[in-house]
Nucleic acid binder design. Structure first.
Lengths: 335, 335
DNA sequence: ATTCGAATTTAGATCGTTCTAAATACCGGG
DNA sequence: CCCGGTATTTAGAACGATCTAAATTCGAAT
C-alpha cells in the first residue's frame, strides 16, 4: 500500500535536532548554522525525505500550486499558451492544476470550486463563452488571485492577451498592399471578447484602408465548419477577393472548402489567418497569418500571477503582446 | 489578502452539532440522520463552505489528485491524449496536475518529486526519451500507483497505448493495394519505444506484403525536420513510390518539403501518416493516415489508474486501442 | 569570571480534516 | 418502566508541516 512517508520528525531524530530546525533547513532559512544545515541536508538525502506540501499549506497558506482553466485543449493555440504557463511555473517550482471548461460556464464554476478546495494560490482563467461578468468579482471575494488570459469579462483585472485589433489591421493592410479590395471576414459564432475584438479590428481596418466590406460570415470554431462556409463566402453579393479569418483553424478549413468548391485558395481568393499556428506552414498553399506568440502570452500570464501573488495590492495590469505578420503563399500579389 | 476559510467547526457551531457530524455529512456517510443532514447541508450552502482537500488528505491519504507527465505539449497527439485523461478524471471528481518533461529524464525526475510532495494519488507517465528502465520500479517503491501511456519502459506495468505494429501493417497493405511497391519509412531520430514499435511494424509489414524496402530516413520530430528530409528521400538508391511516416506531423512536413523539391505529393509519391491528427484533413493533398484515437487512449489510461487506485493488488493490464485506416488524397490509386 | 547581544535552536500550539472508540438517543417488546 | 439493540452523534487524538515566543549557546567585551 501507500508507503509511509518520511517526516520532519524522523529526520530531526536522526540528526539529533528538533523538528523546527529541520523545517528551517527545508525552507533554506539563513537562521540555521552551516554545519547543522549540512548534516541535516545529508540525512534528508539519505532518508529520501519529501516535504509534504499539503501539510505545509495547511499551516502557512501557500500551496505552490496554481490552477489554469482553458475552454479547449484541441485548439493548439491554447495548448501553446498552456506550455508557456507551465514553463514559467515549473521554473518557479510551482505546479499547474489543469482543467478544461469545454466553454461551459457551469463546468467552469465546478472547476473553480475544486480549485478552491485544493487551496490553489491563484488562477489563470480563460473565461468560457457566456461567463457572467460578475465572476471575476466573485473570485476576488474568495480571496483568490486571478489573471484572465486571451479573453476577458467584467471590469479590468490582470490580463494577458494579444492585440487582435492591430493584428487584424496588419492583415488588412497586407491584403490591400497585395492588391485586394473586397475583403470578407470569416468569424466564429460563439460570442466571446475574442470575437468582438477581431470584429472591431475588422471594422477599424475597413475605415483605415481602401478595402471594401464584402461581408461577414459565421462558422463553428472547427475546420469542418469553416469548410462548409466556403460556399456562403463565394455566394456573397460582392464577390470577395480576400478573406480574413478569425484564426488559422478556420482559415485552413476554409481553404479546404474552397478547393472543394472549385476555387483555388491563393490564386482565386487570398486567405489570411490569425495566430500563426504550426499548422499554417503545412497547408497548401501555405497560410499567411499573424503570429500572436501563444507561449509568450502564457509566460506573461504566469508572470502576472506571480507578481499578484507577491503583491496583492498592486493595480491591475494588462499585458498585451504585439502581433507579427507572417507572409506565406495564401496571399500572393494580385496583377 | 487571503479570505479566511469557512471551516467544519464553524458549520458545526451554526448547525448545533459536532464537527464530526458535519464531516460525515460532507462525506455523504449514511450514518447521519436525514433531518440532520438536510439542516447541515443547507447551512453549508448558506455559508459557502468549501472542503479543504489538503487537510483531508493529510488525515486520510487521498488527495483526489493525479499527476500526468507528457514529453511535449505541442504535438497535438499528446494534448488530445491529455484531454481524454482530463475528461475521465473530471467526471470522477479528480483533478489533474500537469507537467511537461520536455523529453528530459532529469526534469522528469524533478516533476515526480514535486508530485510526491503534493501527495498525488497516482501518476500517468509518458516516459521521456532516455528514461531509465528502473524508473517504474522506483516509483512503485514510493508506493505511487503508476500507469504508463503511449511509451513504455522497464518490465510491464499498467499501460495504455496504441497498436502501432498493426497500424503500420494497415498502412502498408493499403499502399500495396493502391499499387505502390517501393516503400520508404520516415522515422524519428529519438529512441523511444514508440519508434522501435513502428520500425518493427515496418519490418513485419515488408515481410507480409509484396512491398520492397526502399530505405529508412530519420528526421527530428518537427515538421521542419521532415521537410528537410525530403531531399534525402528522393535521393534513395531505390526511388520510393510511397513513404510511410512516423506520424502526421512528419508526413505533413514531408509533403511540404517534397513540393519544394518539385515533387508533387500524392501524384508523384504517396504519403501516409500515423495518428490522424486534425491536421491530416487540412493539408493538400489531404493526408491518408491511421487513426489512433488519442483521447480514447487518454480515457483508457485514466480508467486504468482509477482501477489501480481502487485495487493496488491487481495484475498489470495492457490496454491497447486498435488502429483505423483513414484514406484521403495523399495515397491515390496508381495506374 | 560575568554580562550582553547576537546567533541558533526549540517546545508547543496550530492549520482543517478524518479517525477511533465511546457515548448518547431512540425504538419496540416484555 | 426497563432492556437490548440499532441508529446517531461526539470528544479528542491524529496527520505533517510552520509559526510564535521563548530558551539556549556562543563569543567578545568588560
Amino acid at each position: 500500500m501507500q508507503q509511509k512517508r518520511v517526516t520532519l520528525e524522523e529526520i530531526a531524530q536522526a540528526a539529533g535536532v528538533s523538528r523546527a530546525t529541520v523545517s528551517l533547513v527545508v525552507r533554506k532559512s539563513p537562521l540555521v548554522a552551516d554545519h547543522t544545515r549540512a548534516r541535516v541536508e545529508q540525512i534528508m538525502a539519505e532518508m529520501d525525505y519529501v516535504r509534504d506540501i499539503g501539510a505545509a499549506r495547511l499551516r502557512n497558506r501557500s500551496s505552490r500550486t496554481i490552477g489554469v482553466i482553458v475552454p479547449n485543449l484541441v485548439n493548439s493555440f491554447f495548448t501553446e499558451f498552456l506550455s508557456g504557463v507551465e514553463e514559467v511555473m515549473a521554473r518557479d517550482d510551482r505546479v499547474v492544476l489543469l482543467a478544461n471548461s469545454h466553454d461551459d460556464p457551469r463546468r467552469q464554476d465546478e472547476i473553480l470550486q475544486r480549485f478552491r478546495g485544493h487551496g490553489v494560490d491563484g488562477v489563470i482563467l480563460c473565461p468560457a463563452v457566456g461567463t457572467a461578468p460578475e465572476l471575476p468579482g466573485r473570485i476576488a471575494g474568495w480571496g483568490m488571485p486571478l489573471v484572465q488570459a486571451l479573453r476577458e469579462v467584467g471590469p479590468p483585472t490582470d490580463f494577458a492577451g494579444a492585440d487582435y485589433i492591430s493584428a487584424v489591421s496588419l492583415a488588412m493592410r497586407h491584403l490591400v498592399a497585395q492588391g485586394c479590395r473586397r475583403v470578407a471576414f470569416l468569424s466564429v459564432s460563439a460570442r466571446t471578447s475574442a470575437r468582438e475584438e477581431r470584429l472591431a479590428g475588422y471594422a477599424r481596418a475597413l475605415a483605415e484602408t481602401a478595402a471594401e466590406d464584402a461581408g461577414i460570415v459565421e462558422a463553428d470554431l472547427t475546420w469542418e465548419g469553416a469548410a462548409r462556409s466556403a460556399a456562403q463566402i463565394l455566394a456573397l453579393d460582392t464577390r470577395p477577393d480576400a478573406v480574413l479569418c478569425f484564426n488559422d483553424i478556420l482559415a485552413a478549413g476554409l481553404m479546404a472548402g474552397l478547393r472543394q468548391a472549385g476555387c483555388e485558395p491563393g490564386r482565386d481568393l487570398a486567405v489570411v489567418g490569425l495566430d500563426d499556428l504550426p499548422l499554417a506552414a503545412l497547408t497548401y498553399p501555405t497560410l499567411t497569418s499573424v503570429a500572436m506568440d501563444a507561449p509568450g502570452i502564457g509566460r506573461k500570464a504566469a508572470r502576472l500571477l506571480a507578481r499578484r501573488l507577491a503583491d496583492s495590492g498592486a493595480p491591475p495590469e494588462q499585458d498585451i503582446v504585439a502581433p507579427r505578420l507572417v507572409v506565406r503563399g495564401s496571399s500572393p500579389k494580385r496583377v
